[in-house]
Every structure is written in C-alpha cells, then in structure tokens.
C-alpha cells in the first residue's frame, strides 16, 4: 500500500508540474492564440466540477446543471470530485488545459484554492462558484458566487411564525433542532430565525439541540424534548430530515404533528414536501439545488463580458401545505 501511495504521489507531482508549466506557457502566450480554442464552432464550453453525490439534494443539483446546459446549448464537461479537494483541483487544471470558456465548481472545502484559481485567472478563464464559497482574500480570483442564503432561509421561517402567532396572547414555546454543530447552514439558519422571532417577545426558544441533520438524530432529541417540556407549541428544524424524525417522536408521544405542535423546516426535499402536503408539517423554506438555469445564464453573461454582481442568490421560495400539494407532482427531488 505504501509503495502504491508513493507512486500516486509521484504521478500526481508530475501532473501538477505539467499543469503548472502549461498554465505558465499559456499565460506567456497571452490572448493571441484564440484561434486554437475548441469553441470554434461558436458553442460555449463549461467545465464543471461537482463535490460528489452524497445526498438527494446533490443529485438534483447535478441533474439540474446537466439538463439546463443541454437546453442552453452549452457544451458541459462534468467531473465528480467524490468529496476530495485534490480531485477537484486536478479537474480544474484539466479544464484550464482544455481551454474551456468558463469554469464552475462547488468547492469541497473553503480553503486552499488560491493557487489553482490564480492559474485559471492567468489563463484568462473566468470562474463561477456554485452552492459553496471559498475563503480567498482576493475576490478577483472568481467572477461570482451563486448559492443559497442560509440566513434568509432562517429569517423566512421566523417571519412566517411571527405572522402566524401575532394574535397569540400567551407565550409560544419553540424547540429547535440544529444542524451539525459549527456548519454554515446550522449557524446561519439559527441566526436568521432568531433575528426574525425577536419581533415578538412572546416567542421563546425553550430548548435547542443538534440533531446532526439526520432523521435518527432529530428523533432521539425530540423524544427527550417532549418528555422534558410538557408544553411545546412549535418545532423549528434546520432541515426536513430532522423534522421527519421528530414527527415519529411526536406521534409516539400521543400528540398530533402539525396541530398540537406546529412544524417548520428548511430544504423542501420530496419526503418533506409530502409531509407538508399531508398537513404534518406546517411550513418549509426552500433551499433549492436547481440552480442550473441561473448558472447557464451567468456563463453566457460572463463570456459576453457583462459585469455581474459578486454574490447571487439562488431563486428560492417558501411552501405552505396548499402550495406543497400543487408543487409535489412536478417536484424533481
């Protein structure tokens, strides 16, 4: 195993060296060699590197990008990084070598992108970040970042609750199921929700605990919440899956989800939307993976030289049970 590891490292080192040399060579040539670009036929080429296929959300994200590229007449070179940064860097370097028109990727991690982004910049290829951002200090390394605004998702959830409870006279007890501790969606959704419900002093979070974004976690935590707190009016879960787990705990406690305890979640995956349509959930703020059409639009604009904002939000909405019933038949994920 050790020797194999060594061989891989050596091969990778050679690849890195080659890529760097090529990139430097290209940068030296400047813009004079546009005649060699494969985009001769007038078709735009987009190199996209995906994180992996770790969830239904991600699969829907991939499909959206593939389908909308076809519709927009953009040639897509797709790479699955299988959750590894080194795969992603290799893919981006390949795209630079192939002289694609635009590179887009969902970074596996936040840091460590400066070198490869600089190579792309030197090669004159614009980069678009999707879904997740990078922490590079030099913002000129990429054109824009398109993705969800987690704070907004939390705020929309909170605002709905404030609207629903404005006639309430007594205190409204809320329990919160947080996502994975320290993750951006968990921190931001908590923040947005907290800010929104501050508008009504009757609304109080009486317990908040992490359910790790999983059904089993959501269920185990909710079971204890129900036993420790006799009066729970509202459950706010940072994603659908924890809400679905909590559903079972609520039913087992002899309460009716959606009526005795109002449930607000975020994401709007299929199972969550089904629960909403069945009246077991009360409200879902969408976190949409379907950013393909927006991305293709951006690719065209970037190539045409138009200026675009540094931060673009994915078009997202919220769902009530009625809207969920209407949306379910055509739901893609």
């Amino acid at each position: 195993m050790l020797t194999m590891g060594k061989a891989i490292t050596r091969r990778r080192a050679v690849a890195v060296l080659t890529a760097t040399l090529l990139a430097t060579g290209m940068a030296a040539c400047g813009n004079s060699d546009t005649g060699e670009q494969p985009a001769d036929d007038g078709k735009l080429t987009l190199g996209f590197s995906q994180v992996g296929a770790e969830s239904g959300w991600r699969t829907a994200n991939t499909n959206s990008i593939k389908e909308s590229a076809k519709e927009a007449g953009i040639e897509l070179k797709f790479d699955d990084a299988q959750g590894k940064q080194e795969n992603q860097i290799t893919a981006i370097r390949n795209y630079i070598q192939q002289k694609v028109d635009v590179i887009a990727f969902s970074p596996v991690v936040e840091s460590g992108w400066d070198t490869v982004l600089k190579e792309a910049k030197d090669a004159g290829i614009p980069v678009i970040l999707t879904d997740r951002s990078v922490d590079s200090a030099d913002k000129s390394l990429y054109k824009t970042f398109i993705g969800s605004d987690f704070v907004k998702e939390g705020r929309l959830s909170g605002e709905w609750l404030v609207e629903q409870t404005k006639t309430a006279t007594g205190p409204v007890n809320i329990v919160e199921l947080q996502g994975t501790t320290g993750s951006a969606p968990a921190n931001d959704r908590k923040k947005g929700f907290g800010e929104a419900i501050a508008a009504n002093p009757n609304l109080k979070i009486i317990a908040s605990q992490t359910g790790e974004f999983t059904r089993a976690g959501g269920k185990a935590v909710m079971e204890q919440f129900l036993k420790a707190n006799p009066k729970i009016d509202v459950l706010f879960a940072h994603n659908d899956d924890m809400g679905l787990g909590a559903l079972e705990a609520i039913t087992a406690a002899g309460k009716v989800p959606g009526k005795d305890i109002k449930i607000i979640t975020i994401d709007a995956v299929k199972d969550g939307m089904q629960a909403l349509a069945d009246g077991k959930f009360n409200f879902i703020a969408e976190c949409s993976p379907l950013l393909g059409p927006q991305l293709m639009d951006l690719v065209k604009k970037v190539k045409a030289g138009e200026t675009i904002p540094q931060r673009i939000e994915t078009q997202e909405t919220t769902f009530t049970p009625e809207q969920a019933k209407a949306a379910l038949p055509t739901r893609k994920y």
């Binding site: 770790e54 969830s55 790790e212 974004f213 999983t214 059904r215 089993a216 976690g217 269920k219 899956d241 679905l244 787990g245 079972e248 199972d271």
Partner: peptide
Amino acid sequence: MVTANVSSADGNAA
C-alpha cells in the same frame, strides 16, 4: 434496528 427506528435507510448517516 437503526433503520427501522426512523423507517428509512440513510447510507450516509446510519
């Protein structure tokens, strides 16, 4: 038991 507890199989989290 783990999957029956939540009536679903999650390859990532189970």
